[in-house]
Simulated assay, not measured.
Amino acid sequence: MLNGVNRRIDRWRTAAGRATVVPFTVRLGIALTGLLTVGVSWPADLMADPKFMLPALAAVFWPVAAPRGRGGTAVALTAIAGWLIDTAGFGSPVELWRVLALATLLYLGHTLTALAAVLPYDAIVNFDVPALWLGRALLVVLLSAVVIVLALGLTADLGGEAFQLATLVGLVAATTVTMVLTRMARRE
């Protein structure tokens, strides 16, 4: 077992010595978005307590160290748990800026993790690659924010059974699209 740990440490040392600027910067972006995500979603009282802060930080830095694994999911679940604890447990109000910030940070963290997963740590890449990647992601975030704000404006005008029916139809459509895409992915 000790041999395995020593080999892993040697591989990490070699990787750190061969790392180039762009992949390292992408991984720093993953860490920054993860930290901001946890900061937006979790109550400040709990983040001051080490027994809550240390597992959250471990989840945040997991995709930085291993972007091909389940680290991105761990960050998202940590953020969701913090959001639920803050809103349901501590009674914090649901505010639009927090919802938009959390969605933005989760999406940016996810897309940076995906980029880091396909970008070797020692790749020599122009800064144009992550800049275009982030530009597309920010465009998606901006369009999504506009749609969310418009939808929230419509929910204030609509109400009752029509709104509930539209919500159910939307959920069924989203579920159907997810199932179709999953089947298509399994065929290939």
Rank of each mutant, 00 (worst) to 15 (best):
L36M: 15
V99A: 07
F52V: 03
L35C: 14
A151E: 09
V146G: 10
G72N: 10
V125M: 06
L112T: 05
T87G: 00
G72I: 01
A19V: 09
A48N: 08
L35F: 12
A173D: 07
L108Y: 05
T175I: 09
V129D: 01
D128C: 05
Y107W: 14
V60G: 04
G153T: 01
T14Y: 07
A31S: 10
A101T: 05
T87Y: 01
A131Q: 10
V129E: 04
R187A: 11
A66M: 14
T37P: 00
Y121A: 11
P67G: 05
E95V: 15
F127M: 10
T25F: 11
L119I: 08
G109L: 11
N3V: 12
R13Y: 09
F52G: 02
A65E: 03
V177A: 14
N6H: 12
E161R: 09
L96V: 15
V125W: 00
W133E: 02
V149N: 02
T73R: 08
D128W: 11
V118S: 13
R7K: 14
K51T: 11
L35D: 03
R136Q: 11
K51C: 00
A145R: 01
L150M: 14
D122M: 01
A174L: 13
V40W: 05
V60F: 01
R8P: 00
P50A: 02
A162G: 06
R13F: 08
A173Y: 07
T25G: 07
A101P: 07
A15E: 15
L112R: 03
G159C: 11
L36P: 06
V26T: 02
M53Y: 08
W12F: 14
R27V: 01
V60K: 02
G159S: 09
L142N: 08
V38F: 08
R98G: 00
A88R: 09
L168K: 12
W83Q: 01
V172E: 11
R186A: 14
L106W: 04
T104M: 12
P130A: 05
V129H: 03
M47N: 00
A131H: 08
P43N: 03
G39I: 04
L139T: 13
T33Y: 04
V140G: 00
G72S: 09
V94D: 08
W133I: 03
G159Y: 04
A76S: 13
I80E: 02
A19R: 15
L105N: 00
G159K: 10
G69I: 01
L102I: 14
G159D: 05
L143G: 11
V177L: 15
E95L: 13
L138R: 05
K51F: 06
L105C: 03
Y121R: 14
P63T: 01
G153C: 04
V140D: 10
A185F: 10
W97E: 08
V147E: 04
I9G: 00
I148M: 14
D122N: 11
G34M: 03
A31D: 08
L54H: 00
P50E: 08
T78L: 06
F61A: 09
G29E: 06
F163I: 10
V177G: 01
A58C: 09
A137N: 07
V26C: 03
A123M: 06
A137E: 03
W133K: 05
G160E: 03
I30E: 01
A116V: 04
A65F: 13
D49V: 13
V125N: 01
T167K: 12
P67R: 06
W62Y: 15
T104D: 13
G39M: 06
L152V: 09
T182I: 04
V26R: 01
